[in-house]
Simulated scan of single mutants.
Amino acid sequence: MTRGYVVNLMRKAGHSEIAVALVSAALFSALHASNLLLGQSPFATLLQLLYTFAFGICMYLALRVTGNLIWPILLHASTDPSIFLQAAHPADGPLATIAGFGNIPVILVGLLAIIFIRGRVDATRGAADALSADPVR
């Protein structure tokens, strides 16, 4: 939804790529706030929102670099097995520890990558051309 729908709508409206990236990542993150309603603690939810915002930036960049929506979908799917493994095993088990090591690099890469997002996609170009447009316009 955030990369396939929001990104396309914002690009067609002529928004800058940094705005598109930040709004799509923020919406992706906000969608995970519903975990509060499922009983997740506010602190855990806050950490999850930080992680999902940074991960949203990473998925946006995967879309931008490849020009194909399948790559962010597969990137997101690659994180789902660790979530299911953590649900099946206690959070203090070895699988949770191993999965946790990946969270900090994802957050750092996502947040640092924001400084490299530049340009604006020309709304009059085709979708494939727009995704491969020169990012320094």
Score class of each variant (00 low, 15 high):
residue 2 T to Y: 12
residue 2 T to V: 09
residue 2 T to L: 14
residue 2 T to F: 13
residue 2 T to E: 10
residue 2 T to K: 12
residue 4 G to Q: 08
residue 4 G to E: 07
residue 6 V to H: 03
residue 7 V to I: 11
residue 8 N to C: 02
residue 8 N to M: 08
residue 9 L to G: 02
residue 10 M to G: 04
residue 12 K to Y: 07
residue 12 K to G: 13
residue 13 A to F: 06
residue 14 G to V: 00
residue 14 G to D: 01
residue 15 H to E: 06
residue 16 S to V: 00
residue 16 S to K: 14
residue 17 E to T: 10
residue 17 E to M: 12
residue 19 A to D: 05
residue 20 V to L: 07
residue 22 L to H: 08
residue 23 V to G: 04
residue 23 V to L: 14
residue 23 V to S: 09
residue 25 A to V: 01
residue 27 L to C: 11
residue 30 A to L: 15
residue 34 S to I: 05
residue 38 L to E: 03
residue 38 L to W: 02
residue 40 Q to K: 15
residue 45 T to W: 12
residue 46 L to R: 03
residue 48 Q to V: 13
residue 48 Q to C: 11
residue 49 L to K: 10
residue 52 T to N: 15
residue 52 T to A: 14
residue 53 F to S: 05
residue 60 Y to W: 03
residue 61 L to E: 08
residue 61 L to V: 15
residue 63 L to A: 05
residue 64 R to S: 06
residue 67 G to I: 01
residue 67 G to R: 02
residue 67 G to Q: 01
residue 68 N to R: 11
residue 70 I to K: 02
residue 70 I to M: 01
residue 71 W to R: 02
residue 72 P to C: 11
residue 75 L to T: 08
residue 78 S to I: 01
residue 80 D to L: 11
residue 80 D to S: 11
residue 80 D to T: 14
residue 81 P to K: 01
residue 82 S to K: 08
residue 82 S to P: 06
residue 83 I to R: 11
residue 85 L to S: 07
residue 88 A to N: 11
residue 89 H to M: 13
residue 90 P to M: 07
residue 91 A to Q: 12
residue 92 D to P: 00
residue 93 G to C: 06
residue 93 G to T: 05
residue 94 P to E: 04
residue 98 I to P: 03
residue 98 I to C: 05
residue 99 A to P: 04
residue 99 A to G: 09
residue 100 G to P: 09
residue 100 G to L: 06
residue 102 G to V: 01
residue 103 N to A: 10
residue 104 I to N: 04
residue 105 P to N: 10
residue 106 V to G: 01
residue 107 I to W: 10
residue 112 L to S: 08
residue 112 L to D: 03
residue 114 I to Y: 07
residue 114 I to F: 10
residue 116 F to Y: 14
residue 117 I to F: 10
residue 119 G to P: 12
residue 119 G to Y: 14
residue 124 T to L: 06
residue 124 T to P: 04
residue 124 T to Y: 05
residue 125 R to H: 03
residue 126 G to S: 06
residue 130 A to T: 03
residue 132 S to R: 15
residue 133 A to C: 02
residue 133 A to I: 05
residue 135 P to M: 06
